[in-house]
Design a protein around this nucleic acid. Structure first.
Lengths: 190, 190
DNA sequence: ATTTTAAACTAACAATCGTTAGTTTTGTTA
DNA sequence: TAACAAAACTAACGATTGTTAGTTTAAAAT
């Protein structure tokens, strides 16, 4: 099924609802009501509830994948690569808040090939991030620490930044970027 | 209803299932099957599915509340208070992994007075944490940054550490503590 | 003006949901 | 061993779930 204008409205409304209550707590009747139509009418545009979830999540996942794939091979140092990753996370947080929240909360409700696609992308993303960190340690730009825990410390904050942003929408991406760069890379101690 | 031995078995089995699939994706029949009984038999021990969720979440929330209430008034400096908070998060992550994940993922499915209780505790917790950070900045132990973003950077990682731990159960709490203290407080840059 | 297409509708389906009522089995106490 | 309590069972309820079939309305193209 093609992605028409109306279908995009349905998907983005779904993302908003999924974010608030979770995929399994939003019924097709809930979604229809939010669009002021009947549940059955949704099926003129989409083939299943699952399809909606897959569209929402895979699009964001592809955004992340594309970015890491361009940054990873660049001839800049590890810290600069990490800064670029932070910037990208903030941009997606700001521009696709709802979809990002869905990805974080409901990816495990994807099924079959969509779930597999997502996991492949996520694993590849983390592998490249780990590799950037390892390089940074080797080149003495980063402290010599447990790589997996460094990776987790970074990603856990970046992935859930939408929780903060949704309560602070007036904050400029630029300020978020500067502050998060400091917090994540330089720590908080004076 | 009292918390008998059997009831605790039900609650902890539920926590395990809720963590994997989410509250609304686990049916009472799923839970019963995991315990090798029929769904109706559960109601000899618990009064509702909601009660199970409330028991799981509120117990962990009270653990966090108790700890911050003892650390907050102590006459130690802000950095030492933050270290104690980090230590507590790690301890709860290790000892109550499933329940902590439930709290993170499913608190919004609490209802009425239980939801209210949870939010009161969470707000109080964050307020005390914010106050510790503010004090640290005043006393020049912490860098002068956006307090809310510092708070979020710390809590986002600490709250989701269970995701990392569940894939790295062999790691000692002591090592986790030392590494996370470094990552969160001192940053990762050399 | 007529045909075609897009997008809504009503009505209903089989499945699953949390839960209740009433009964039987199991294990402990008198 | 009889009596009692705890914990399982079967059967069923009303509500809600995602989805389908068939129909009507509204807009666009001929």
């Amino acid at each position: 099924m093609k992605l028409t204008r109306r279908k995009l409205e349905i998907v983005s409304t779904a993302a908003k609802l999924f974010r608030k209550k979770g995929y399994n707590s939003v019924s097709m009747r809930d979604l229809a009501q939010a669009l002021d139509i009947k549940a059955a009418s949704l099926y003129n545009h989409i083939s299943s509830k699952q399809e909606i979830l897959a569209i929402i999540i895979l699009e964001v996942a592809e955004n992340f994948t594309e970015h890491i794939n361009t940054v990873f091979p660049e001839s800049i140092n590890s810290v600069e690569k990490l800064e670029s990753v932070i910037e990208n996370h903030i941009q997606i947080t700001v521009e696709k808040t709802d979809a990002l929240a869905c990805l974080n909360n409901d990816w495990m409700h994807l099924e079959q090939s969509d779930l597999e696609s997502y996991l492949v992308m996520r694993n590849a993303y983390e592998a490249k991030m780990r590799s950037i960190i390892e390089q940074g340690i080797q080149q003495k730009q980063l402290q010599d620490r447990n790589v997996d825990l460094v990776l987790f410390s970074l990603l856990s904050t970046l992935r859930t930044l939408h929780l903060w942003y949704s309560k602070n929408k007036e904050t400029s991406p630029q300020l978020m970027f500067e502050e998060m760069k400091q917090n994540l890379l330089h720590g908080i101690i004076r």
